[in-house]
Design a binder for these strands. Structure first.
Length: 421
RNA sequence: GGAGACGUGGCUGAGUGGUUGAAGGCACCGGUUUCGAAAACCGGCAUCGGGGAAACUCGAUCGUGAGUUCAAAUCUCACCGUCUCCGCCA
């Protein structure tokens, strides 16, 4: 959510921003609505002030006849207030709905573009593997090594179901353990949050109301989080944080549930696009300064880059174009790791910053040096997601004999083994 | 699952219909005192929104949302949450 004052004072910037994100929003309508809102609010408040004033008179005045008369007068004013309040409520509902739809303004450095096809590559790292044999895809490799069972996965879960078994499960634990150690060393506080979360957390982080069709829902009206970003951000909702603890760096570990409603035809095979997976997520809260946000955005991106590099996986980094940005995001980098058999990079990490878009909705503030309460800034980036990462791990490290070499850094979590076979 | 109690400012804690946005304490910030510090004393200290250059002023907020009333922290209802006892499970 943006500040309505900011919207009114920077109408053109907000409009341009929405356009860059390819989001339809009628800012002029919102501005008119807000003028109405303020006018109506003033009328209601003036009437309330009168009632308050006279009520005090009633309490003080000893003359019973006068009391009765004043009470009668106030009764009429109350009726008027009621009518005006009803009007105000209608305006407020509409106002609120529109406010939740206003996208955050993308940074000037965000390239223009419609879809992810127009994201710009800004970095390429690593050597793509050259095989002197016909490489296999991860489904083949992992099935042969009995690391995964899709048939039974579909039997038990349905479409996109999978079991990770034996080395598939072990490798997942290895990745998690390694990531836990890696990110802890960089000052991240590990958190295992609830993944079944109240609606407010989804509105607060910007996933609702827009992406309802992608979320699993419970009978109680809660939702299953598609990322630990939701509960970890919700953790401090409504709080006034101590500035001295900034930046707050959390490493959230949670199952992630995504309906993938709009992508039933895509990536139907394998572990790339599943409805239930696990992710370690970097979530960061800092003071409200653009420079600070940018600094930490680069930092959490760098963290992930170095993590991937330590695994020895070739990847590239893209700046997402305007059309590929979410409602609240100011700027986003995606890291995409090489998948040899598909002959392309696949997204594994997504690093974005939001300014106070999320914290305003979640009411996360801190007291600044000038004594004023300010909304903190928030950012997040993937640390690592399984099982998607296993795809590039096994495909890039596959050997002619069908075995898979285990990256050096993971070996200590795999009992010192060098190969999966 | 059954019965009961409770939810007040950064924290603690009074307040059961009328100038109560809310006593007292702690914490915090100024000042006096002191060579300095502590203690003591004096003063300040909620948030959000509207108007105003400002002083200031108006409105809202005592878990959340509705309601009763001229007037609600205080009464009613629903919801959320916490605690205690019993039961159940581990």
């Amino acid at each position: 959510m943006l500040d309505i004052k900011f919207i009114k004072e920077n109408k053109e910037i907000v409009k341009e921003g929405a356009k860059k994100k390819r989001i339809e929003i009628d800012i002029d309508k919102l501005v008119i609505l807000d003028d109405d809102r303020l006018k109506m609010l003033k009328e209601v408040e003036d009437l309330r002030a009168e009632v308050n004033r006279v009520s005090n008179d009633i309490a003080r005045d000893q003359d019973p006849a006068l009391k009765v008369q004043l009470i009668e007068e106030m009764r009429l004013v109350k009726d008027e207030i009621k009518k005006k309040e009803e009007n105000l409520k209608i305006i407020m509902d509409e106002w609120h709905k529109l406010m939740l739809s206003v996208p955050n303004v993308p940074d000037i450095s965000v390239p223009d573009g419609e879809t992810d096809a127009e994201n710009q590559e800004v970095k390429v790292w690593g050597e793509k593997p050259v095989f002197n044999f016909e490489p296999k895809d991860h489904v083949e490799i992992m099935t042969a090594l009995k690391m995964v069972d899709f048939e039974r996965g579909v039997k038990v879960h349905g479409f996109r179901g999978y079991f990770l078994i034996n080395d598939g499960a072990k490798l997942s634990f290895a990745v998690w353990s390694y990531a836990m150690e890696f990110f802890s060393a960089r000052g991240f506080i590990p958190v295992i949050p609830p993944a079944i979360d109240r609606k407010e957390n989804f509105i607060g982080t910007g996933f609702l109301p827009q992406s309802e069709e992608d979320l699993y829902k419970t009978q109680g009206g809660d939702y299953l989080a598609g990322t630990a970003e939701v509960p970890v951000m919700g953790m401090h909702a409504g709080e006034v944080l101590d500035k001295n603890n900034f930046p707050l760096k959390y490493l959230g570990f949670s199952p992630c549930y995504r309906l993938e409603a709009g992508s039933h035809g895509k990536d139907v095979k394998g572990l790339i696009r599943v409805q239930e997976f696990y992710k370690l997520e970097q979530v960061l809260l800092c003071e409200a300064s653009h420079e600070t946000s940018v600094k930490f955005h680069e930092e959490i991106t760098q963290n992930a880059e170095e993590f991937i590099e330590s695994l020895g996986l070739p990847y590239h980094k893209v700046v997402n174009c305007g059309g590929d940005l979410g409602l609240g995001q100011v700027k986003k980098y995606d890291l995409e790791i090489w998948v040899p058999k598909e002959d392309k990079y696949r997204e594994t990490h997504s690093a974005s910053y939001f300014h106070d878009f999320q914290t305003r909705r979640l009411n996360i503030r801190y007291k600044d040096d000038d004594g004023r309460l300010k909304y903190a800034h928030s950012l997040n980036n993937t640390a690592i997601a399984t099982p998607r990462i296993l795809v590039s791990l096994v495909e890039n490290y596959q050997q002619a004999d069908g075995s898979v070499k285990i990256p050096e850094v993971l070996r200590k979590y795999m009992g010192g083994r060098e190969f999966l076979k």
